[in-house]
């Protein structure tokens, strides 16, 4: 039994109603100004965080569970990368140039930018109903078929007739909700647990994670999930029509010409 999804039926049968049923924001914009500005600041901050984080890791690419761990302790795992420090044994015959100080400054600066931007995004989204309207799944999104269709076929159709371009599809909702409400809070939490001054002020934060080294290892693993999202997100944007999607995220306007034939 295959039925067209509720969204596509609704969108296709009455184009005139599309604006009032599924538009992301009033005025026919796909993305509101706040969403666009916070998206790009977050994008730059995420790139800076992943880049500087990768650099910081090379100072000690060994990871441990629990509270402590040094070169004298067996690691839980070691990343197969060269190190920026002479004393760290690696399989490589060379030592990377050491820019750890600069990487760290960039990392914390980008973290502040991302957290402050995230607070602006979250508070305005609660205020305007962006979360409720565009992110929390509606009934037609909460099944595997909708998810699979969104990933496999949704982009081809979005390209052909523009349907679904006013709101997020099931796969997008799932991915964005995971990043906003799971990965980002986990990254902030595990990151703060690596701050000796923050641990002094809120010891329960690092204790609940199971210790400083566990927090560091989790911070790496969650960053890996974020990297997977970023790669998938960019791939999907390219598949769905790079120019149209970029234009929508920059100007806010979804492509409308010749899409309703």
């Amino acid at each position: 039994m295959t039925f067209p999804s509720a969204t596509s039926v609704r969108l296709q049968e009455d184009p005139l109603r599309r604006g009032e049923t599924a538009s992301a924001v009033a005025g026919g914009l796909r993305h509101s100004l706040v969403v666009r500005v916070t998206h790009w600041i977050s994008a730059i901050a995420c790139f800076a965080l992943l880049f500087s984080g990768a650099g910081i890791v090379t100072a000690h690419p060994r990871f441990y569970w629990g509270e402590v761990g040094t070169l004298k302790d067996p690691p839980a795992f070691t990343l197969p990368v060269p190190s920026s420090r002479k004393l760290v044994p690696t399989r490589y015959g060379f030592v990377l140039p050491d820019y750890n100080g600069g990487f760290r400054k960039l990392h914390f600066e980008a973290a502040w930018a991302l957290v402050l931007t995230g607070l602006v995004y979250a508070s305005t989204s609660l205020w305007t109903g962006h979360f409720k309207r565009d992110l929390f799944p509606e009934r037609q999104h909460t099944n595997w078929r909708a998810l699979r269709e969104a990933v496999l076929k949704g982009f081809a159709r979005a390209r052909a007739d523009g349907s679904g371009s006013e709101s997020y599809n099931a796969a997008q909702r799932f991915a964005y909700l995971t990043v906003i409400f799971v990965l980002a809070p986990l990254l902030v939490w595990t990151g703060l647990a690596l701050s000796p001054a923050f641990d002094a002020a809120f010891p329960a934060g690092v204790a609940a994670l199971g210790g400083r080294q566990t927090a560091r290892t989790l911070h790496l693993l969650v960053s890996g999930s974020l990297l997977v999202f970023v790669v998938g997100h960019i791939a999907m944007v390219i598949l769905a029509g790079f120019k149209d999607r970029m234009r929508a995220m920059i100007t806010g306007r979804a492509p409308r010409s010749a899409k309703r034939i």
Binding site: F108, E109, A197, F198, D199, A200, A201
Partner: peptide, 22 residues
């Protein structure tokens, strides 16, 4: 790049000046 350090230092001095290390 001094902005991030300033925010961290100011926030921690304002909110947790007297906390004790674990």
């Amino acid at each position: 790049l001094g902005v991030g350090e300033t925010l961290t230092y100011a926030a921690q001095r304002l909110l947790a000046n007297h906390s004790l290390a674990r």
